[in-house]
Amino acid sequence: MAIDQKHLDLINADIDGEIRDSDRRELRAFLAESVEGRALHEELASLCSTLDAVDAIDPPPHMRHVIMSSMKPARTKPESPGFFQKIFAIPALTHSVTFAAGIFLTLSLLHSGQISTGAFDDVTGLVGTIADPIDAEVLGAVAFDKPEVAGKVALRRSGAMLILDMDLVAVRPIEVEADYTDRTIWFNGFAQLESSGTKISAETGRIRLGMDGKRRFAVYLQNKGGRETTVKLRFLAGGKVVHEASLDYMPTR
């Protein structure tokens, strides 16, 4: 005998703890008479206890920090857009200005042994936007989620340029070291998106970056010879290595 809708509702309400006392008495009487009713009640109770036994999962430890870092400061009163805001609302200009700001910050913060070699004379690679290099082929990427640092690093190639594209968040100041094995490859530039405060230094075969909070930036390496190389990444917090990874560039013959 099929169970009518009213008793189906009562069975479900009982399982879900939403039954009224008067209805509970009626349900008891029904279950005492109905084999199908008892079977369904038992079946649903068992299913619900299976579902309720599944543990809640913890969000990634850095998620709160990422969200708070992404939050724009609240405005105290509505503002109408000014001349510069209207101009910079044009995406191409926004990217250009962001990129220019990145280069300016780089040059103001950077101390490099390569300056004397003339590496910075060549800025032909410093075009486009770090957010999504249009022609850059992704050679490899690593993602990680450590208590001190989390995020993704991708190695891209665009012509003779290798691009280390980093999207990181750190809960306290960290250092990132990128060692590249081929000494004919040299540091060609750095850009960052909507942030400041990243410190960078370059020497032959190694780039060092200092950062805190949420940062999106790109390091440009000139690889004119198209040489095979491995970029070894080390992430240090308080002088201790907290994560290591490597990315390879293997030219197609």
Binding site: I57, P59, M68, R75
Partner: peptide, 23 residues
């Protein structure tokens, strides 16, 4: 408090709801 730009209140709401939202 969030409407008034209080970041502490924003963080409190975030702490309260991040786990259920994520789950």
């Amino acid at each position: 408090r969030c409407v008034g730009g209080d970041r502490k209140a924003i963080e409190t709401l975030l702490v309260k709801y991040e786990k259920p939202v994520f789950n």
